[in-house]
Design a protein around this nucleic acid. Structure first.
Length: 269
DNA sequence: ATGGTAGACCCTCTA
């Protein structure tokens, strides 16, 4: 069974690319972020016509997540618990293929306002969102559910996951508070699927999932690893591989992110 | 050198 995650930066602009990639790879479940449209404007029919089920959480112009799967999808929640006033479309948790799968788009958090008590409203929201995600992960793990958290975490876990760690040290994606909050989630007992399969370290090639449109970041391979799969123990036991498909980032009219594919032993979809 | 691009938008914001 294969699950992929892809921040598409507008599903309406990327629908041909996503449909072609799905047909080419045949992944069972695809998690999308930054669909950037209300649910009614999501081009669900073309995926349904291709034999997939589609569930969408949308809002106008910004954010937006979706799950596309070959198998039936049971929606568990369309909101991340912990803040009833949060209207941003960033979380969709489903059961599919026997797994509890959370598709998430974690807040970017920039700009960080140094010198202010909470480092700015955007960054405070990011840290609150991460605390809510930690609580949700703890609850699902306590119930021994086979959980997969996949999506755009907007977190660079380690210096080897960014082309220039010094230049990024104060950024909301890499600053120490962000990495601490990410580690606190992982340390509940989750496995970073990519790093479990590719330990990294000196001499290993960089493994990025995002390259900014600006300043020639893609042709220079100056990217970030910010799209992740975190696996609960029952799913980590089935981990067979995790790979970054760089090809879509090099295509014309590409998203600034490229897909990450999680490969599990067994499992039906 | 304070850049550069992309997408959606009510003409500016987010990333």
């Amino acid at each position: 069974m294969r699950i992929a995650t892809w921040n598409v930066n507008s599903i309406r602009m990327r629908q041909d690319a996503v449909a072609a990639w799905l047909a080419d790879t045949g992944v069972d479940v695809l998690l999308l972020q930054e669909t950037k449209c209300v649910a009614d404007a999501f081009p669900a029919d073309r995926f349904r016509d291709a034999g997939y089920r589609v569930e969408v959480v949308g809002q106008k112009a910004r954010n937006g997540v979706a799950v596309i799967a070959r198998c039936p999808i049971a929606v568990e929640t369309r909101r991340l618990p912990g803040d009833d006033l949060d209207e941003e479309a960033r979380y969709l948790e489903v059961t599919a293929g026997g797994l509890r799968i959370a598709c998430l788009y974690l807040p970017n958090g920039n700009p960080v306002e140094e010198g202010t008590a909470d480092l700015g409203a955007k960054y405070a929201y990011k840290l609150r969102w991460m605390a809510r995600l930690k609580a949700r992960a703890a609850a699902l793990l306590a119930n021994e559910l086979p959980v997969v958290f996949g999506g755009d975490f907007n977190v660079i876990p380690d210096a080897e996951d960014v082309y220039d760690p010094v230049a990024w040290q104060a950024d909301a994606l890499f600053r120490l508070e962000t990495r601490r909050a990410f580690r606190a989630i992982v340390h509940l007992g989750l496995t970073d699927a990519y790093r479990a399969c590719h330990p990294g370290g000196a001499g290993t090639p960089p493994a990025y999932t995002f390259w900014d449109y600006q300043a020639g970041r893609w042709p220079r391979d100056q990217g970030l690893r910010i799209d992740h799969f975190l696996l609960g123990p029952a799913v980590a036991d089935r981990l067979a591989g995790c790979l970054i498909d760089r090809a879509p980032r090099g295509a014309p009219k590409a998203s600034d992110h490229t897909p990450v594919i999680l490969v599990l032993t067994d499992g039906l979809c």
